[in-house]
Amino acid sequence: MPVTVETPIEKWNGKVREVTLGATQAEGGTRTSTVTVGGSATLPFLHFEGSVPHRPVIAIQIQDVDPQDWSPALRAAWGDTTKDVVAWAKKAAELGPDLIALNLRSAHPDAGNRGADEVAQTVKSVLGAVGLPLIVYGPGVAEKDNDVLVRVAEVTAGERLAIGLCEQGNYRTIVAACLANGHIAIARAPIDVNIQKQINILINDMGLPLDRILMDPTTGALGYGLEYSYSVLERLRLSSLQGDGMTQMPTICTVGEEAWRAKESKVSEGVPEAWGNYAERGVIWETITATTQLQAGADIVVLRHPKAVGLIRKTIDLMMAQ
């Protein structure tokens, strides 16, 4: 007797909100292209159930100071380019990412403590060198973030940058700058669905429209808390599909930063032989962290190694092929 299987479809009431990064000349910016993320009406890559209108996208992360503390395996992949942020941005763009993520590390008190005007000029230079939409991260010290990111937001008004990080303890100044200058705010919470929702609400309450907020629920690297961020991403996606408007923002995951901090990616000596080949290990660590986050609902993955970019792009191709 043939058995007939009825495809089990979940009926969802909501979907992930669409957010467009970057603005072309016609839209008030200077980008040669824009990137729209989000819009999914189902769980990641389940095309049989609902529309997945936009691919998850890849950002390549660069910074405005030569990252001497990065893993040797990662530095080797970029060579001397990392010494000049504009050259680095161009080289990164050649790898075909969707976005460039620029860390303004030079403003950090430990890394040069550059002032807001100088750093804002760096952002302008990068915008002049590449046509892709830009994500801009402050140095991660509240006082400097507020100083630097406000100036950056002003001199790049209309570019529709994604700017972060906005956290519960420090978001007002950055959000106000995004609001006044047509940018997108990145809301960061510490692997916690409730805090994520809370910070989203606080940002929205300041008047920033919901299609100008991205969620960064914090990424745990493979072996270093991956399961927590995996489940938080799944819960956020389920919550947005169930119709909770305050968790429907697309998600951004700083995969490269976390994966390359793992001991496996950094340390070449005095580790078990079973860990395998050092030169390749970090790339795989970053790649597996990324694929797992994508599978749980990441809309943007921020990567560091060129080879990981290629592997992840191919993975996204496979999962989006109809």
Binding site: Y230, E264, G276, E280, I284, T287, I288, Q295, A296, K314
Partner: peptide, 29 residues
């Protein structure tokens, strides 16, 4: 790429995963 697909299989519902390649660098993750 085999490792990437295997990783997806781990998270989404496989019970037995048959690998064609054995390499500690790929198996450990």
């Amino acid at each position: 790429e085999e490792t990437i697909v295997a990783a997806q299989n781990i998270a989404k519902y496989s019970g037995v995963i048959v690998l064609d390649n054995f390499d500690p660098t790929l198996v450990y993750p």
